[in-house]
Design a protein around this nucleic acid. Sequence first.
DNA 1: GTAGAAAGTTAGCCTCTACTAACTTTTTGT
DNA 2: ACAAAAAGTTAGTAGAGGCTAACTTTCTAC
Lengths: 155, 155
Amino acid sequence: MAAMIKSDFSAELPSVTDERPADARAEAFQGVREARRNELAEDYVELIADLIHEHGEARPVDIAAQLGVRAPTVTKALARLAREGLITRAKYRSVFLTDEGRALAKECRNRHEIVLRFLIRLGLDAETAELDAEGIEHHVSERTLALFKSYADRP
Amino acid sequence: MAAMIKSDFSAELPSVTDERPADARAEAFQGVREARRNELAEDYVELIADLIHEHGEARPVDIAAQLGVRAPTVTKALARLAREGLITRAKYRSVFLTDEGRALAKECRNRHEIVLRFLIRLGLDAETAELDAEGIEHHVSERTLALFKSYADRP
DNA sequence: GTAGAAAGTTAGCCTCTACTAACTTTTTGT
DNA sequence: ACAAAAAGTTAGTAGAGGCTAACTTTCTAC
């Protein structure tokens, strides 16, 4: 049946779907799924860096408030981040970034800031820009980020 | 303690974190999580519409190939989409969109196409544009989409 | 028309994210 | 200093998304 579609059909009406082979599209989706897996970690690390910068420490209660989730969700997520080597912490104490975590935070902050400036430069209001940047920043390739930066920085 | 931070602290050093109240940031993250929940459904519906358009039907095996996942994953996802009223189907048969599903597909296709044209207009190569559009399209507000469209359509 | 191939489903497993309820630890205020 | 409040953790639940292995149904080619 698949053979039928690939031969009989696409022979006479070359389609968008066939022009873009399944492999290529699958790769795109796999990339997106990969990005999705890292999004949460990036959100946490970025937020933790912010909180440390602002308040000298990152407490689970503040992380939970900023993310809009409950405390146990944060406890679990932090356990995962610790497992992944992005943070260190002791039970009942606040959270610190490892070198790796700090590097990731810096990268995230940079991306976030570029996307935000880009959207505002494009004419978006600051609030919507902030909302959209939060979602978009995880799905922007290096190349796109460079273009965003050029646009935002242009005279 | 939270009270302490809100009063004692922000009174003397107004910080980024405090300027952007926890509620507002939490809203942003909740928005992103909401978007994430719909992403898969949107990917499926968009792809199903494509396949129907190209081949007259959308078979699980083709959906799986295009998304880069295994057949049982598709079976499960389709059950969810049917539960949500986006598709109809009979066991062992291919998939059809409901009116609601068709509307969503149309909306997604429109967004996808605008984001893609925008990125290309910005100077991105077609392949990277396709990869990034796949991730970005789900996180673009109406306002941002309008700006993207203006930019892509400008003379 | 039927046997073998292809497609689809089911069952069972895993991880991640979120929740509530109940518990422990730490902080705070008197 | 100690009781009450706040913060943090643990345990248990649920759903989404992914997988493999094993099974059933449909298709196809002879």
